[in-house]
Design a protein around this nucleic acid. Structure first.
Length: 242
DNA sequence: ATGTCAGTCAGCGACTGA
């Protein structure tokens, strides 16, 4: 089973790239973040035509998450994290697909730090950990895939010194990530590639992509029952590059 | 600090979030 996570920064602007990715790599499951569109405007018909069933939780202008499944409909199990009814930001959706629970997440960026946005990020991560622990307790095969907005270690950023105070790399968010691993989750990419510099995101600025000045902030965490089934993990550098 | 996108809308170019 091939599971992909993709922050597409606007599904309207990136639909062509997404369809290309589906066509070229034929993933079984796709977790999407930053749809930046309302539920009504989600391009379900185009995805169905490409052979994918979908569930989604949109939001006007910002955020928004979706799960696609090749040749079937994802069976929704959650469309938000519990514990904060006033939180209207669309950042978590979860479904059963082919016997695996798939959680698709978009952790708040948290900048500027300190401030209310950073506090929200920490609180959100606590609620997320609660859901993650429930899945571990249930003993089910599960993957939590998405844009964590967390740089886990120095190996995951081109110049660690420059990012120490940033909301993506601050000690408290790194601790939150480490806690998930302590709980029993496995970082799929690091499990397969323990020592390589592998990035998932590059700023648009100053030619960062060409200089490979990147960050590893998108992750797939798998539960213990899935671990023996993990074959490989990697980054598709660009749609069409494969 | 820098500088680049995708989105919005008293809307055609400024802003905001990332």
């Amino acid at each position: 089973m091939k599971i992909v996570t993709y922050n597409l920064n606007g599904i309207t602007a990136r639909l062509g790239a997404l369809l290309e990715l589906l066509e070229e790599t034929a993933p079984d499951v796709v977790c999407l973040q930053e749809l930046k569109t309302t539920d009504e405007n989600f391009p379900a018909a185009a995805l169905e035509k490409a052979g994918y069933g979908a569930i989604w939780h949109g939001q006007k202008s910002w955020n928004g998450v979706a799960i696609l499944a090749r040749g079937c409909e994802p069976v929704e199990t959650r469309r938000s994290l519990h514990g904060a009814p006033a939180d209207l930001q669309s950042r978590y959706i979860e479904a059963a697909v082919g016997g695996v629970i798939v959680g698709c997440l978009y952790t708040p960026n948290g900048n500027p730090r300190p401030g209310p946005k950073f506090s929200y990020k920490l609180a959100w991560l606590e609620r997320f950990r609660g859901r993650a622990q429930s899945l571990l307790m249930a003993g089910v095969p599960a993957v939590l895939a998405g844009d964590y907005n967390i740089i886990p270690t120095d190996l995951d950023v081109y110049v660690p010194e420059r990012w120490r105070e940033d909301a993506l790399f601050h000690a408290s968010v790194r601790a939150a990530y480490a806690q998930l691993l302590d709980d029993g989750w496995t970082d799929a990419l690091r499990n397969r590639h323990p020592d390589e510099r592998i990035y998932t995101f590059w700023k648009y600025l100053r030619n960062a992509y060409a200089r490979d000045a990147g960050l590893r902030i998108d992750h797939l965490l798998i539960s213990p029952p899935l671990r023996p089934r993990l074959q490989d993990a990697g980054v598709d550098l660009a749609p069409g590059a494969l």
